[in-house]
């Protein structure tokens, strides 16, 4: 079976996110007065061959732990979609 894996990597809450701050200031400058607590992360998508959704998820989790996210500074979320 082939699965589409969606990975969302975000800077860990509590750590300074200067990109988020810069975007927040830019939004304010454009007149979007209501926007706040902006954070900038990263989305990664990939195709993965696996026997079950559970296997796909566990494989994708290992990818995140080894490469896609930095365990010191980032948190990640996974979504596995059957094709």
């Amino acid at each position: 079976m082939s699965y589409r894996v969606h990975v969302r990597v975000m800077p860990r809450t509590g750590l300074l996110d200067p990109q988020g701050q810069a975007v927040e200031h830019a939004l304010a400058a454009l007149g979007f007065a209501g926007a706040g607590d902006v954070r900038v992360g990263r989305a990664i998508e990939l195709e993965l061959a696996a026997d079950s959704p559970a296997e796909a998820e566990s494989e994708a989790r290992r990818m995140c732990e080894r490469l896609l996210a930095n365990p010191v500074t980032e948190d990640f979320e996974l979504e596995v979609e059957a094709r």
């Binding site: 800077p11 750590l15 300074l16 200067p18 990109q19 810069a22 930095n70 010191v72 500074t73």
Partner: peptide, 17 residues
Amino acid sequence: LCEAHLLPGALMRNAGL
């Protein structure tokens, strides 16, 4: 060296960008 875990911690985007 930090990414390889030969040293602890990480180096992030400069404050002020």
